[in-house]
Every structure is written in C-alpha cells, then in structure tokens.
Design a protein around this nucleic acid. Structure first.
Lengths: 336, 336
DNA sequence: CTGAAAGCGCTTACAG
DNA sequence: CTGAAAGCGCTTACAG
C-alpha cells in the first residue's frame, strides 16, 4: 500500500525516471520521446494511479503551487466570500491555498507571514494590519509575488486591489444630503487602516462640498477592540449628546448591525425617526422589513481581480505594478 | 539574498549539518551535544534568521505539518466560523491548513481530496458529500487520520463530530406543539446527507410522540440546486395549498432566511399570522424586531472538538474511534 | 530518442 | 560528544 513513485513507474515501463518525468511534465514532444514510450508510460500511470509527489517536486523546483491568503477574519461574511472566490480560481489553476486570519493582531500577522514564507508559498494575497508595513516592504524587496487586498500603505508602492472607499462614502453622503438630512453622523472605528481613513475623508469632503454650510457632519470613532455591548453604550451616549442627528452612516457592516441593534433597543423606526445607512452589504440589510441602503463592495469582482493579478505576477514579471481601485455600488433601499 | 540553509549554519558554526539538525529539532540533550555548541548554533540561527525549509523536511519525514479542511462552503457563516476556530487551533500547534469548498459537487470533492492527499496533508477534517463515501472508506483503509464533520455515513464507521440533529428537531417541534401550534410544516432540502435526514426524523417523531393525533406535520422538500427565487416560488405554492399551516420550521439557516423573505413579501407578521423557527442561528435571526427562535449549533465547540480529535489521531493511534454528538441549544425568542 | 547522475534541504541510522 | 553518508521523490543539464 506504499505510495507509488516515479521510479516504480520507470521500472515497470522499463525506461528511466528521466523519461517518465518528461512525460508527466508534458515535455515528451519537446524531448522527442517516442509515441510508444509515451503511451506505455501513460498507461502505467493510469493503471497504478500515480500522481507525482508535490512535496518532492516542490523541493526540487522551489515552487510549491500553493498560495497564502491572509485575511482579517475568515469567519466574517466579507472575507469568507473573498476566500471562496480565491479558492475556486486557485484550485482551477492547480494551486492550493493556505489561509489564515490575523484578527488584526500584529503578532499573529507577522507569524503567519513567516510560516507561509517557510512553506514557500508561491504568492500571497494579504489584508495587511497596520504593523505589517515593514514585513510587506521586505516581501517586496525579496520580489515575491503578492497583492494587498482591501487596504494598502499609501507610502509604500505595492500591488493592490481595494474599493474606492472615498467615493463610496462621498456618494452615500451626497445621497443623504440630497434626501434632505441636515445633521449626519458618521460612525467608524479608530485605528483603522487607510480604507477607514478614506471613508471618513469621503464623508467629510461631501459634507463640505455638498452641504453648503447647511449640513452638519459629525464623526464618532469607536475603538476596534471593544465589545459590541461597549460600542452600543458609546453610540447611546453619543446620541444622547446629539439628539438632533437625523441620519446615521456606519462605516462597516458590523457597525451597521450595531446601529440596527441600537434602533431596535430604542424603538426607533427607520427612516421616520432616523435614517440609517451603512458600508458593506449584508443579509441582514437586505432582509429587514425596512431594507437598509448601503455602499456595497463587489466582493467577487474584487477577489477575482486579486487572484488574477497574482497569477499574472507569478507567471511573469513581479516588477510590474498593478493597482486596482474598484468602484462601489450604492444600493438604494428604504432606510433613508 | 538567497535563502539560508542548514548547511550554511553548519559551515558558519564549524560543525556538521547533523549537529545543527539536532539542535533545531531539540534533540541536543538526547544526542548529548555540548552546551557550547548548542549555544553557538542557536546564536547563528538567530543572527542569520534561519528557519528550516518545511518542504525539505516534509520530503524527508513524510509529514507536512499541514491539515486539509474540506467544507461545503467557506463563504457561509457556519463553515466560515468553523474554519476560523480550526485555523486558530491548528496554527497554535504548528500546523498550516489547506482549505477548500465542495459546494456539494461530487467531482470537486473528489478532486480536492486527491489534491490534498498529493500534498501529503497529515490529517483531514471533512464535511463529506454523498458521493464521497468510497473515497472516505479508502482514506480509512489507508489509515489516514481524519474526522468527518457535520455529517457522516451511518453505514461506514468513522470518527466524526456532528450535532444531535434528531434531538434539535425533536425538541423544537415539541416546543411548537407545546405552544399550541396544530399544523406545522417542516421545510427542508432534498438530497441532503444524514444530518438532514435526522432533522426530518426528529420532526416526524415529535409530531407522532407529542402531537397525540391532534397535530399535523407536513414536510416540504426543496431541491438543493435551485435558486433562492425558485425556492421562494415553491414555498409560495406550498403555502397556497396549505393555507392553514400555523407554524413553519426551517431546516437550515438559509432556508430560514428564505422564510423571512417569504413573510416579508406576503406581509405576514410573526408570530401573529404564522410562527417561524429555524435550525442554525444567524445575525439575521437575532437582530429582527421579532427575533427568531432557533436550534443553535455551538459552532466553536464543534470545531474545537474536531480539531482536538484530529490532533489526537495524528499524535497516536489512528485506529481508535471517536464519535461526538454535540447537543444543540434551543434559543427561545419571539417568533413562536 | 533516451539515460546516468547531481542536487533541492533536510533527517537519521550508523560509526567512532 | 560529533560527523559522513544515504536517502526522501522529484527535475534537468549534460552526454550520447
């Protein structure tokens, strides 16, 4: 029952391992192996159900035909679906994927990257944490194929695929202003990376561009680490000190969910008592009686871009710079 | 910038590769390498930032320190969170994890398993599809460490971790009967594996045990492949032919979500017009005005059990049989 | 058209 | 206490 090796096939076929290696690597033509030999070998491979040992091949070639995927949290709807698309494409192209979640822990992020380097993955798709900057710079210096996802470092030139976060926030804010809201609060998290900064800036810019001095824009920044319960309290306090806020714009879907909890608890009805909109779509937003208007990220498209770019980098020149900013979609529903 | 190898360390330290290998594998004591040598080697390892090449080690030892995780769909809330827990534990123990989704496709499932075998993963956690039975039997014959998750083959003895699906459905049905519902419809999917069968049987048994002839139990089985829209139509038709159904019990969370869509579309109010309960918890079920009563699966506990069992199997005797049936929790909320 | 041999970077039985 | 050497299963430059 021992695994069967290339050598076994060679012996059975009465040819050398070289020959067998050529046929399994489709170099038979190029190396001008005779038709009969090729056929004999292929027949044996089928009969014995032989598949080359990927590890040995990896050692020899320095390629592992595997990719490393580092996300923030694979259990989260956004990243889970990103992982899904990436996996599907990767397997189709013959790549395995190793994944892991950083949970925004710097330590874990660094360890993961080391582990993946060690494992000689051929390419990386990374949702970086703030502290990963030097590790990413290192990766770049080593000329490893990688693409950053969802966020990047403005002062470090790399390949990336991100949403146009500024535009998403800007457009949504403009939409709210157009609807007549006059005191809009943007609820976001502190310590976010540039994707969160851009959302905040988009919001502020729209307030100043489109508000014409008549619209007030407030920003509430919640810490990342706190519990949902704690955040709910903070939101509560905030709303008590600003009772005349007429629209809430949440910067991520889990914050939006928090917002729904808040309105449920306060028995506020949307959009009559207050408008509620959010970044990121979510089942919850679609399947309420009052459906929530959102800035949606085209998840599949973004993931497909990322893996596509990575494949290109791995195929050829890792020196090209490919940066994609994907347009968000504003899905207008009932909540504003 | 070339990767630094064990040999480089040996040369720099003026010792043999054997010695270096012993120290990196913590066999220094056992092999009685002198303290000074150990220290010199360790110092160089730190200085040169050396980490052994996992691939080479894998080839030599036949172990890859990686696990294969095959789920139905990593983008789905349940499996995404399973993946999260498994990954966290695995990395803590020094294992990488390769994942992939079957989408219940037999072909894909078989290919994935082959790919993982090829990759020499040390152990498997598998959510099997129906057609994987022979492949699983084969895995068992090869004495590979593996544990089935969420479902298993009743006529094939294997390690597994599953929910007590029968009990979950039984208890929930009993709860509905106790609440006074008299015509209960169980909405499930066709072609499901034994986890779905058990849910249906639990439902039926409770109807006959607890209904005392006064409660009618109906079953609607929807095909797996159909779109959400198609399923909605089927549900619609079903309800039109059975307008007096007073409670709907959905067998999975995505079916429950379908149910919510249905009530939204029909403007039915829960629980006044109709009761709605579901298997599996979901954000959507918690964060409605009317919160949905569910049979919850303790996801983390189940995932933790699975990886724990796998670690045990990999450490020792893969011949032991470990089968865990986890109790569900009925979370009573407002929808019935 | 085909093969012998080196080598990828490790581990480990054996020898001293 | 330490090292020389074989070998894991492949690929590939070289030779014929």
């Amino acid at each position: 029952m021992a695994r069967i090796s290339l050598k076994d096939i060679a012996k059975a076929a009465g040819v050398s391992v070289t020959t067998v290696s050529f046929v399994i690597n489709n170099k038979a033509r190029e190396k001008r192996i005779s038709e009969q030999v090729v056929e004999k070998v292929n027949k044996l491979i089928r009969e014995k159900n032989f598949t080359p040992n990927t590890i040995a091949r990896g050692l020899r070639t320095g390629k592992s035909t595997s990719l490393g995927l580092i996300v923030e949290d694979i259990g989260n709807h956004f990243f889970g679906n990103v992982a899904k698309t990436i996996e599907m494409t990767a397997y189709k192209k013959g790549y395995k994927v190793l994944y892991s979640s950083t949970d925004n822990s710097e330590k874990k992020a660094r360890e993961l990257l080391d582990m993946m380097k060690n494992q000689q993955v051929d390419g990386y798709i990374i949702t970086p944490t703030k502290g990963m900057k030097s590790a990413i710079a290192q990766l770049k210096k080593e000329k490893k194929p990688f693409v950053l996802f969802d966020r990047y470092f403005p002062d470090l030139e790399t390949n990336y695929v991100v949403l146009d976060n500024f535009k998403g926030a800007y457009d949504m804010t403009e939409f709210l202003i157009g609807k007549g809201y006059r005191k809009i609060a943007f609820v976001t998290i502190l310590n976010g990376m540039n994707q969160m900064q851009n959302r905040k800036q988009g919001f502020k810019k729209a307030i100043s561009d489109k508000g014409k001095g008549k619209v007030e824009g407030l920003v509430l920044e919640l810490p990342y680490e706190i519990t949902a319960e704690g955040n709910l309290d903070r939101l509560n306090e905030f709303m008590e000190s600003h009772p005349d806020v007429d629209a809430l714009f949440f910067a991520t879907n889990y914050l939006g969910i928090l917002g729904i909890q808040y309105t449920l608890r306060k028995q506020l009805s949307i959009p009559d008592d207050i408008a509620l909109v959010s970044f990121d779509d979510h089942d919850l937003f679609r399947l309420q009686k009052i459906r929530i208007t959102v800035v949606a990220q085209p998840i599949e498209k973004m993931a497909a871009e990322a893996i596509d770019i990575l494949m290109k980098l791995m195929a050829g020149e890792p020196s090209v710079l490919i940066q994609k900013t994907i347009s968000p979609e504003i899905l207008i529903r009932d909540s504003a």
